[in-house]
Simulated scan of single mutants.
Amino acid sequence: MKPTLVIMAAGMASRYGSLKQIQRFGPSGETIMDYSIYDAYRAGFGKVVFIIREQFSDDFRAIFESRLKGKIAVDYVYQNMQSFAEGYDIPADRTKPWGTAHAVLCASAAVHEPFIVINADDFYGRDAFEKAHQFLMKEANDHTFGLIGYELIKTLSDNGSVSRGVCRADASGNLIEIAERTKIYRDGSDIVYEEDGIKTKVPSDSKVSMNFWCFTPYVFSICKDMFSIFLQKNINQPKAEIYVVDVGAEFIKIPGNALKVIPTRSKWFGVTYKEDAPGVESNIKTLVANGEYPQSLWENV
């Protein structure tokens, strides 16, 4: 059974200011997601599942239906505010989705095989998908999950702060601790995260999660339990979210479980801010010029 690629694309892009997930960056109009799907396809993945907001369904289908037909199986799931929130009245001031852990939970009906979860607006690189495929086929099970780890210094934006899951692993590469830092940036020659107005230095070579996770469907039961507890505590908090990183942290608390931090040599880049877009386009142009991707990504697949 081939593993599945799950793409989280339901975010509102509040800092970016538009639906960045379907912005076209490639020379033939490719989105960043196209390159992720292409890398997953040639690594051996058999299906892609888009997690989107229902009002964007037509936009996504218009882009991907024709270009992916006959190449890789495609499915769509919707991250709705009401999903898995039965018995709760959603407050009127709650306008944003519940977070990435809830997004993963929303994919549970469409995924029945080992899978990876990624962000729609991050370019992860071919090596990351090959490493993830190898891990899913040879190592992953209900007690062994994984994440692709990138060096922090290679994941920053020049245009503002970023959110990163900072990892601490043992000598065997098993995750000991992961901390979601929602405001990381360069501060002179240092890299810091800021919390409650306090700055704390972070080593530049720290391995960080870019939301590239390797799971089995067992993760859905963890997400469901955690989301239920989250709602009990946060139903009236309009900006509270539950993250995939929280799921990973909970998973490794269970005796006998391990979460492998899988290093990659791939270069990451993404579009947190509109000002990041020219750099993304330039990076893709360079990769195409170097022969790592064709000029027209899907033409001869």
Results as ranks from 00 to 15, higher is better:
Lys2Val: 05
Pro3Glu: 02
Thr4Met: 10
Leu19Lys: 11
Leu19Asp: 12
Leu19Ile: 13
Gln23Tyr: 05
Phe25Trp: 12
Gly26Asp: 02
Ser28Asp: 12
Thr31Trp: 01
Asp34Ala: 07
Tyr35Arg: 03
Ser36Leu: 08
Ser36Asn: 13
Ala43Lys: 01
Gly44Tyr: 01
Gly44Trp: 03
Lys47Arg: 10
Lys47Thr: 06
Val49Ser: 03
Ile51Gly: 09
Ser57Met: 04
Asp59Gln: 10
Arg61Val: 09
Ile63Pro: 07
Lys71Val: 09
Ala73Thr: 08
Tyr76Val: 05
Tyr78Asp: 10
Asn80Thr: 13
Met81Lys: 14
Ser83Ala: 13
Glu86Gly: 14
Pro97Arg: 02
Gly99Phe: 04
Ala101Ile: 02
Ala103Gly: 13
Val104Trp: 03
Cys106Lys: 00
Ala107Glu: 02
Ala107Ser: 15
Ser108Gly: 07
Phe115Asn: 00
Ile116Met: 05
Ile116Gln: 00
Ile116Thr: 09
Ile118Pro: 04
Ile118Lys: 04
Phe123Gly: 01
Tyr124Phe: 11
Gly125Ala: 02
Ala128His: 01
Phe129Arg: 00
Phe129Gln: 00
Lys131Tyr: 08
Lys131Thr: 10
Ala132Gln: 02
Ala132Asn: 03
Phe135Pro: 01
Phe135Asn: 01
Leu136Arg: 03
Met137Leu: 11
Lys138Glu: 15
Thr144His: 15
Thr144Gln: 15
Phe145Asp: 04
Leu147His: 06
Ile148Lys: 02
Gly149Glu: 05
Tyr150Glu: 04
Tyr150His: 08
Glu151Pro: 14
Leu152Gln: 07
Leu152Pro: 09
Lys154Asp: 12
Ser157Gly: 07
Asn159Gly: 04
Val166Met: 08
Cys167Glu: 07
Cys167Leu: 14
Arg168Ala: 15
Ala169Asp: 04
Ala171Cys: 12
Ser172Ile: 07
Ile178Gly: 04
Lys183Cys: 09
Tyr185His: 11
Gly188Trp: 12
Glu195Tyr: 12
Glu195Ala: 10
Gly197Pro: 07
Ile198Asp: 09
Thr200Trp: 04
Val202Trp: 00
Val202Asp: 00
Asp205Gln: 10
Asp205Ser: 11
Lys207Val: 06
Lys207Tyr: 15
Val208Met: 01
Asn211Thr: 06
Phe215Leu: 03
Thr216His: 11
Val219Lys: 04
Val219Phe: 05
Val219Asp: 02
Phe220Asp: 07
Ser221Glu: 14
Ile222Arg: 01
Met226Gln: 12
Ile229Ala: 14
Ile229Tyr: 11
Leu231Cys: 08
Gln232Lys: 13
Asn236Ser: 13
Val244Phe: 00
Val244Asn: 10
Glu250Phe: 10
Pro255His: 12
Leu259Val: 03
Pro263Asp: 05
Thr264Trp: 08
Arg265Pro: 07
Ser266His: 01
Lys267Val: 13
Phe269Gly: 03
Val271Lys: 05
Val271Cys: 13
Thr272Met: 08
Lys274Ile: 00
Gly279Thr: 03
Gly279Lys: 06
Ser282Asn: 10
Asn283Trp: 02
Ile284Lys: 02
Lys285Gln: 07
Leu287Lys: 08
Val288Ala: 06
Tyr293Asn: 09
Tyr293Glu: 09
Gln295Trp: 12
Trp298Ile: 03
Val301Lys: 04
Val301Pro: 00
